[in-house]
Design a binder for these strands. Structure first.
Lengths: 175, 175
DNA sequence: CGTGTATTTCTGTCTTTACTGAAACAACTG
DNA sequence: CAGTTGTTTCAGTAAAGACAGAAATACACG
């Protein structure tokens, strides 16, 4: 597949941002490609389009699947695995938030709980203990909050918070 | 400063998570240290406590200042710079969100706008153009939404969204 | 059950980033 | 204004991560 200029620009940009988003360039590029393509692609096609090693594509697709950002589909009469991602940006957002929370927040919540359950916490300064407690509570609240927010539709969320309905309207999907 | 076991555990954990949060280990460790200490520390003290090079501390403090997560304070009768961070976790959260948005979102919003303004967009597939547009709109909405959410107190936020007041109450600061 | 095709795993290389220690710089102090 | 203390910059090194290419594996089909 030959990318048209703007699509290429999008894919390359996504790749550059990948490292800031906690995934490597190739993973981000592949995701961008699947998203823009809007149809299942096989690994070979991805390899050629992006100009990276076939093995790299394989590994990256594995990682995308671990994020639930890509799934395998089969086309009739074709032995090869094909991959697709959701084209619903809100759906993608939810998956990314879930993935990041799992990688960036959950381990800390666990560690903080262990800190507070450890009898040695009694030896720490009162202020230190208090701040660790507060941090854990904050994390728990934020998790609850984000769960709640991801459950409801973004339009509802905007309305609830009294954010201008104008933007909200323009956002509503065509379907 | 000699760290007690739990405080050390906290600082080391924060450091390990740093890379997932988009800052390096030392930066994250220093921030954890300042947070737990709850009082201004000078660079030398940080160096000794963490066992890293003095220059590394200097660089990392610069980065923390770039995030607005640390500020210089002076103690009377002491020539040295001292550094402190907020001990208000909600305040810290807001600063971190602001910093991450600036690094992780804003460049993409700019790039997408450029894509859509480029006349070459006309040559792209209809679906591609639509998805790029949708993505930009989504990002703009999310920015508005997060601005809105960061403005109000977390307790209010919880209430607005109808999240159990129980957790919210336990969170309320002692002060 | 052998052959061709698709896919993954592995090993080494390259790139990037973090970090140290030394040197340069800046700012106070007597 | 020389000495002292504090801070930053810089060059080289070490560690981590990403990636390519080869080898190995799995799988479908006759």
């Amino acid at each position: 597949m030959e990318l048209k200029p703007i699509a290429e620009r999008f894919v390359l940009h996504w790749g550059e941002m990948g490292s800031r988003w906690g995934v490597n360039r190739t993973v981000a590029q592949i995701h961008a490609l699947l998203y823009l393509a809007g149809r299942p692609l096989d690994a070979e096609e991805i390899t050629e389009t992006l100009g990276v090693a076939r093995s790299n594509v394989s590994t990256s697709l594995k990682e995308l699947q671990a994020w639930n950002l890509a799934r395998v589909v089969h086309l009739r009469g074709d032995r090869r695995d094909h991959f697709e991602t959701s084209t619903d940006i809100w759906e993608l957002f939810k998956l990314i938030v879930a993935g990041r929370r799992q990688r960036e927040i959950d381990p800390t919540a666990v560690a903080l709980r262990e800190c507070l359950e450890n009898p040695a916490i009694a030896d720490e300064d009162e202020g230190t203990r208090q701040r660790i407690e507060e941090t854990l509570k904050f994390i728990e609240i934020m998790c609850t909050l984000s769960d709640e927010m991801l459950r409801i539709r973004p339009e509802t969320l905007m309305k609830t918070l009294g954010v201008s309905a104008k933007i909200s309207k323009t956002f509503r999907k065509k379907g």
